[in-house]
Design a protein around this nucleic acid. Structure first.
Length: 876
DNA sequence: GAGTTTGAAACT
DNA sequence: CAGTTTCAAACTC
């Protein structure tokens, strides 16, 4: 045990440099009082300043998460990264406790012993760590960092615990440790700074204590234990980093943002208990005879058949660049670029799984160039994903097989640590890779990657840049500056462009209220709703909008009045047809509203139908910039109205359209009953979506117009959040944006909205789209909520000064909230009224325009309930 | 794969 | 704001 002490001392010495973490951790009392935690807390925060190079959106140093979400962000790591930027310490504690499932329980240290040590710091990670060398500290809030820290801790912790707890119970415990440490030694020479000094020495001495035959046994049992445990620990660990990975890609049963391991660990412990008292041979025997025992050591989500949900990418507003060639809806998950990113996400998940597999390669030769592997695997899987059998529909087990297969291939080509360390170099697109990348991505079903040569990928010419994404290794660009390492440059350039055109980065494809098809079936046949239109329109002269030169045609949308094309023959909708429709609608709707508003509804269903019908157009409008998400589409709550609205129109085949990716309705209902909880739930995209759907109707129906805007309140409350949970970077993005916008709206407008309860609807709207991109989050003055902006533009016809447009955003919300209002007050006149200050009392206006309706949907249990919630919400 | 066409973005 | 240039994707051969 001397060596153990030495080891501990070494650990303490090695990790004593960080006090900040420990200090912070101390703020989260009960969970981490164990001796080990104290040691853990003293560990240096190992921070991958710029972790995965997998393409990511422009986070911006001082800006809210994303100007528009990037498919790249789908990377689960990124998702995680974004999700809880402020929770590092807490996470650390959570992960450490949760990660082992033993909270402050000395006895649990024993339990932990069964958990085989894992190669928790991959080569790539180490490489990153090395690269980031000195400046690692400042990003300690990164969950990824946390992972490294936790992982680092794990190495120590598990080592300690194994030594401590196993004692002599398992004859080979020492050998296991030795093995483990020997494994760690695989990193030798890669990054000495990260090696826990003493590991090697102690391990070495321990190893020698094992006899040869015993060692052989140990090897065998160790391998089995490790293989089982690695999956449990390693993979789970990886999925801590990619928490969404577990929940999305593998249908995690637990939607909690924070991993809960206790149950699994308990199971595993139970299984392990069966083994721990046996000798090595028996253990081996037992494990061979009872594979289920081993399986019990494996988290359920990683054993057997994975419930496939596909990934639920964050999604984005439909940027032109986010849309690639259309595919049959069946493959819609990869129709859009962000879908491709979901593939990327899956890839990333798989990648992590692969890492685990690599890690579990206990032959001591697993030092493969992870970065390189990642790249290739990702590319390969993207390729796979691009096939009809997209990754989203691919059996995860197949993915695993694939990964394992790939791993096998990869292992044939083991890179030296040095080579692995050259990830940066490898990441640079090379002509050699170009063809492959293109072949993978340019088949129309794949991810659209840029191929810029002169723009340095810092102009809107660059698809990646325009879509708010960093280029990645799959791009074929040259002299690319659109990379994370040039983050500052990218942001600067982006701001520069936005200064010229604040809407430069907003989605180009928007929904139009004037064209909402009633044929539900159509949704199955198109990838883009006919109601969608290119915001700025095309300017085709020769292509007649029949080729992909046409931005409208390219994304399968018809041309609109915004287009200046000549000889438009767009098969998705000719400009002239659009104009004609628009004209007809503008003529017919006001009369219709009049009719409805003066009708006496005796039949609730009829009321719903009528109102739903009216709302339909409005909803399209409201979602103009944001493809409806599955929470709406897939909401199976028997909400006829919502359903009707959702299904009536053709919606963008949102990548998130994955029923299984969304939580049960109960979650939302709960949120309704508990407004405070709602705020928390709002951090999940699905809740936001659902909320929007339900509350919108509810609000419209229940004469809550007189209620202070719930949403406004929520938004304000939300503003009190730290940008924490990356907070649902997506949903939160919209929230913060709205808040900021609101704060900077002219007082006049604020007052207007203060009087207009419909603001709530507007806020809803903002929040309703977790994929809402933000034009500029870090510069309040330029903040433009794309969705709002879009609607705004429709209203103001692009003739309103920018500042007024911004100020009018909530007004658009009014419009959104009250479809009738729109009909009653045409956009133009509405704008005029606003400008003249004549429309100050939105409430009155709205009430006149629309009769109050009883609750429309079962989701809103009762008027009282919702009302109560609203009251509660508004009371805050 | 090279060259051409096209239209958006950028520039003036 | 219009005209021109630059750029990269789409397209053709």
């Amino acid at each position: 045990m001397d060596s153990l002490e030495t080891f501990r001392n070494t650990v303490n010495t090695t990790t004593s440099t960080s006090t900040a973490t420990a200090t912070s951790l101390s703020e989260f009392p009960p969970v981490q009082e164990s001796t080990f935690f104290r040691s853990v807390n003293n560990l240096s925060p190992i921070i991958p300043a710029k972790a995965s190079h997998l393409a990511r959106g422009f986070l911006g140093l001082n800006s809210p998460p994303l100007v528009f979400t990037s498919p790249h962000i789908s990377s689960q790591c990124e998702t995680h990264f974004l999700k809880r930027p402020q929770l590092s310490q807490f996470e650390i504690s959570q992960w450490d406790t949760g990660g082992n499932g033993f909270i402050d329980d000395p006895d649990n240290s024993k339990k932990s012993a069964f958990l085989p040590p894992v190669k928790v710091i991959t080569d790539a990670q180490k490489d990153l760590l090395i690269k980031n060398g000195g400046n690692m500290q400042h990003r300690s809030s990164s969950p990824c960092v946390n992972e490294y820290l936790v992982d680092h801790v794990d190495v120590v912790k598990q080592s300690n615990e194994i030594v401590e707890s196993s004692q002599s119970d398992v004859p080979c415990s020492k050998e296991i440790i030795s093995k483990f440490h020997g494994h760690s030694d695989n990193y030798e020479g890669v990054d000495e700074p990260y090696k826990l000094e003493g590991e090697k020495t102690d391990v070495g001495s321990l190893s020698k204590e094992c006899g040869k035959s015993e060692k052989q046994q140990c090897d065998n049992s160790f391998v089995q234990l490790m293989q089982a445990g690695l999956r449990h620990r390693g993979m789970h660990r990886r999925c801590l980093q990619y928490e969404v990975a577990a929940s999305n890609a593998f249908g995690n049963i637990n939607s909690s943002p924070l991993p809960v391991h206790t149950l699994e660990d308990s199971k595993a412990w139970a299984a392990f208990s069966e083994l721990k008292d046996l000798d090595v041979t028996s253990i081996k025997k037992k494990m061979v005879q009872c594979p289920e025992l081993v399986n019990s050591l494996i988290p359920p989500q990683f054993s057997g058949n994975f419930p496939v949900t596909g990934s639920k990418p964050s999604g984005i507003g439909l940027h032109l660049n986010s849309t690639v060639d259309a595919m049959p809806l069946g493959h819609a998950a990869f129709t859009h670029r962000q879908d491709m990113k979901s593939a990327s996400s899956i890839c990333h998940n798989v990648e992590n799984m692969y890492r685990c597999l690599i890690s579990s390669n206990m032959d001591g030769q697993s030092s493969v160039g992870i970065e390189d592997e990642r790249r290739e695997i990702t590319a390969s899987i993207v390729s796979v994903s691009a096939t009809p059998e997209s990754a989203s529909t691919m059996d995860p087990s197949n993915l695993l097989d694939y990964v394992e297969h790939t791993a096998g291939i990869q292992n044939k080509r083991k890179l030296s640590p040095k080579e692995a360390g050259n990830a940066e170099e490898i990441n640079q697109p090379s002509p050699k890779n170009k063809k492959t990348k293109i072949s993978v991505t340019s088949d129309g079903a794949g991810c659209k990657r840029c191929n810029c040569k002169k723009s340095k990928c810092l102009k809107l010419y660059c698809d990646c840049f325009a879509a708010g994404m960093y280029c990645d290794e799959t791009c074929s660009c040259q002299d690319c500056y659109n990379r994370l390492e040039y983050e500052d440059t990218v942001l600067e350039t982006k701001q520069q462009i936005e200064s010229r055109n604040p809407l430069a980065f907003i989605p180009k494809i928007v929904q139009r209220a004037t064209d909402f098809p009633l044929n539900n079936m159509e949704v199955d046949n198109v990838s883009t709703p006919s109601s969608a239109r290119h915001k700025r329109g095309c300017n085709c002269k020769r292509s007649m909008c029949l080729k992909k030169y046409c931005e409208c045609y390219q994304v399968n949308v018809g041309c609109s009045s915004a287009c200046r094309c000549e000889g438009c023959k767009n098969t998705f909708g000719k400009k002239e047809d659009y104009i004609a429709t628009e004209h007809a609608l503008s003529k017919g709707l006001s009369g219709r509203v009049e009719k409805i508003s003066h009708s006496t509804f005796h039949n609730k269903q009829e009321m719903v139908a009528n109102k739903t019908d009216l709302l339909r157009g409005e909803l399209f409008d409201m979602h103009r910039l944001s493809p409806l998400t599955p929470s709406l589409q897939c909401s199976d709550q028997g909400k006829e109205a919502a359903k009707s609205r959702v299904l009536t129109g053709k919606y963008l085949p949102s990548p998130e359209c994955d029923a299984t990716a969304f939580p049960p309705r109960a979650k939302f209902a709960h949120s309704l009953e508990n407004p405070e909880r709602s705020l928390v739930l709002l951090e999940t995209n699905e809740t936001v979506e659902t909320e929007y759907c339900d509350w919108q109707l509810d609000r419209d129906n229940m004469e809550i117009m007189d209620q202070p805007p719930l949403r406004c309140t929520s938004v304000n409350n939300a503003g009190q959040f730290t940008p924490l949970s990356n907070a649902s970077s997506m949903a939160r993005t919209a929230t913060f944006l709205s808040l900021r916008q609101w704060a900077h709206l002219p007082q006049e407008v604020q007052q207007f909205h203060g009087n207009s309860s419909l603001l709530s609807g507007g806020s809803h709207h903002w929040r309703s789209s977790p994929i809402t991109p933000t034009a500029k989050l870090n510069e309040i003055n330029n903040v433009v909520c794309p969705e709002s902006a879009s609607r705004l533009f429709d209203i103001l016809e692009d003739e309103t000064p920018e500042i007024l447009k911004e100020a009018s955003i909530p007004i658009k919300s009014v419009k959104s909230s009250s479809p009738n209002q729109k009909r009653v007050s045409p956009p133009e006149s509405h704008a005029r009224e606003l400008e003249s200050g004549g429309l100050r009392n939105g409430r009155k206006f709205i009430i006149n325009a629309m009769p109050s309706f009883p609750p429309l949907t079962p989701c809103i249990d009762s008027k009282g309930t919702s009302h109560e919630n609203l009251d509660t919400g508004t009371g805050k």
